[in-house]
Design a protein around this nucleic acid. Structure first.
Length: 110
DNA sequence: TACGTGACTTTGG
DNA sequence: CCCAAAGCCACGT
């Protein structure tokens, strides 16, 4: 397997509970700002031990084609609320840097 | 080796 | 605010 894929899996595995990240975000962390699609391709392999359901689009909408609704349910089960638009509030649940802390993502503030 | 496709992102109308 | 088009990278055929 190419190192890039392993890197993608590593990042996704580091994503904490009740938190989401976008394909482009992961790609950027790996040094491939244009590799968002390749991240999606890597996710397509769907490693069972990975929280692949925490990986969504940059706009907050859930991808995954046939499994999109399933992933949405999994996220809600973790405590990630979905907006009526069918999107996640990346401003509060979008991981900015790892490890993620309450900084900016706290639901008990302002 | 070349063409087509896609779990994406960003910019323009 | 919503819709459409272009750009990019890898993999499959």
């Amino acid at each position: 397997m190419n190192p890039f894929y392993e890197q993608v899996y590593a990042v996704v595995a580091q994503v904490p509970f009740a938190r989401v990240i976008s394909y482009g975000q992961i790609a950027r962390l790996l040094g491939r700002p244009r590799g968002a699609r390749q991240v999606g391709r890597a996710m397509r392999l769907c490693p069972d031990h990975l929280p692949w359901h925490r990986v969504i689009r940059a706009d907050g909408s859930v991808a995954g084609g046939q499994y999109a609704p399933l992933r949405r349910a999994m996220l809600e089960a973790e405590g990630v609320p979905f907006l009526p638009d069918g999107r996640v509030d990346l401003a509060r649940f979008g991981v900015r840097h790892l490890p993620p802390q309450s900084g900016g993502a706290r639901s008990s503030e302002k």
